[in-house]
Amino acid sequence: MSCNNYYENDDPILVAHHHSALLIDIVRSRNVNSHKLLAGTGLFYDDILSGNKKISASQVLRLIHNCQQQYKQADLSFRWGHTLWPGHYDSFSQLLGNCPNLQQTLQVLHDYRFQLSPLMTPIITEDSQYCFIQWRDAIGLGAHKKFIIEALMTGLAALCRLRSGQRLPWHFGFSHGKPKYQEQYEVNLGKQVYFDLGVDVMAIDKRYLHKNWQRPKNQASYNTALQYCQSHKSNHIGFIEQVFNDIQIHIRQPLPLEDSATRLAMSSATFKRKLKKHHSRYQQLQDQGRLATALYLYQCNDYSNNQVADYLNFNDMPNYRRAFKRWSGRTPNNLKQDLLL
């Protein structure tokens, strides 16, 4: 089975005047020269203003790197997050900014992620009490993942606040460790923030999913936006997301690298080269997939350690514990304590 719907990090497919332009605006307001921001990206400021330039994910990452170098303060990702959504992405923003409730907002964010959130994929799951949004790297973000996840989580929380008129009781879990600038998390996200979780996930009580928000100001234009988005829905996904999906389907019997390459219709050598280009290793993606599965089973199916080990085909518990520690840096029981909401 071959699948050629994925985009790689050097494919120019992202609209330059969308997410990236918002970031440039913030940094430029501090009197930073736009030449310095665009150095090494191969872009000119006029390109971005022109409104029809497409750029690649690696250009966006380089831009983020430059902005951090020039801006130097810890609040940049959070400020960017506040501006991300609904944003100015044509009909997609109009749709996102007018959803009648949280559940639909999440659905729109997921369905139109190519336009709304091209760097990370929101995966939505539910258990009996909570709704979870797991953010997954779509394109190989490497060292910039922390910056981007901060922005995206801030963005979603800010969008909900704007639409619902109140701060929703979100819980935020991050895969990275406790940063030095914790106060930024506190002010922008709130008190319920956890670190070293192995996954990047937001959770909210399911009661909030269907609470009604402000009605769309103009129902007709909302409907037009919906129609436009439905007819322009893209099934493009990031290269890493594609690999990840393949791994996830075969999570109980790990898919060897060679088979993964075959599914993408390329040789093992090409596949390895492409993974390297996307700052990823196959083993690491596989570990992330198994960790996410284990956490899902703990949280949503109330599985015990034994059941999870069994599901993931480990022969004995010590083996499973050791593997789990390698994936997340923590023992299963230790991590489970933080997961209990």
Binding site: D25, S29, R79, H82, T83, A158, R161, L162, V187
Partner: peptide
């Protein structure tokens, strides 16, 4: 802190 500062930012811009 300033109440509803994020609303202000959205309405009038970052600058």
């Amino acid at each position: 802190d300033i109440n509803d500062f994020s609303q202000f930012n959205r309405r009038f811009g970052n600058a």
